[in-house]
């Protein structure tokens, strides 16, 4: 099953709506709650990153019988040093974003912890692609 969602940069009001809808789908598919939680946490982090940093983005979700693949493609500033961004506590979020309670610098490590496979590719000045893959059955 295939779904597509649009994300608007700076729209914190609706940040998390994709995660919400994916969560509902996984619940209907009788996926184990622990796996749902992992997947939604990883997706939510990635979704909020687009809202916080990029101009706009698209989320492509593909659910197979035994797995979920999520691809988040944004047009934005990109990540200059991905290895550094993977470090716990490192944050590039602006002060105004942090004041809203986001940008604690746990994004990428948290995503990694909650996905079976995480691939981050980025081009500075152009955008970032995040790919999350999770098995849906233990």
């Amino acid at each position: 099953m295939y779904f597509e969602y649009e994300v608007v940069g700076g729209d914190f009001t609706n940040a998390g709506s994709t995660s919400s809808s994916v969560k509902k789908t996984l619940k209907q598919l009788n996926v184990d709650p622990v796996i749902i939680k992992r997947t939604v946490v990883a997706l939510y982090e990635a979704e909020v990153n687009i809202v916080a940093h990029a101009y706009k983005g698209k989320i492509y979700i593909n659910i197979e019988e035994d797995s979920i693949s999520i691809r988040l493609v944004d047009e934005g500033p990109g990540i200059p040093d991905i290895d550094k961004a993977m470090e716990i506590g490192f944050s590039t979020a602006s002060v105004s974003v942090r004041e809203m309670g986001f940008g604690a610098g746990m994004g990428l490590p948290n995503m990694k912890n909650n996905s079976d496979r995480l691939i981050v590719t980025s081009e500075v000045g152009k955008g970032t692609i995040i790919e999350i893959y999770n098995k849906l059955q233990q």
């Binding site: 099953m1 619940k27 209907q28 598919l29 849906l136």
Partner: peptide, 19 residues
């Protein structure tokens, strides 16, 4: 849990039903 949300115990079947 006593989920009423799930469409089927079997995931493949649930996916068919969802479609």
């Amino acid at each position: 849990p006593r989920s009423i949300i799930k469409l089927d115990d079997n995931m493949a079947e649930a996916m068919k039903k969802m479609k």
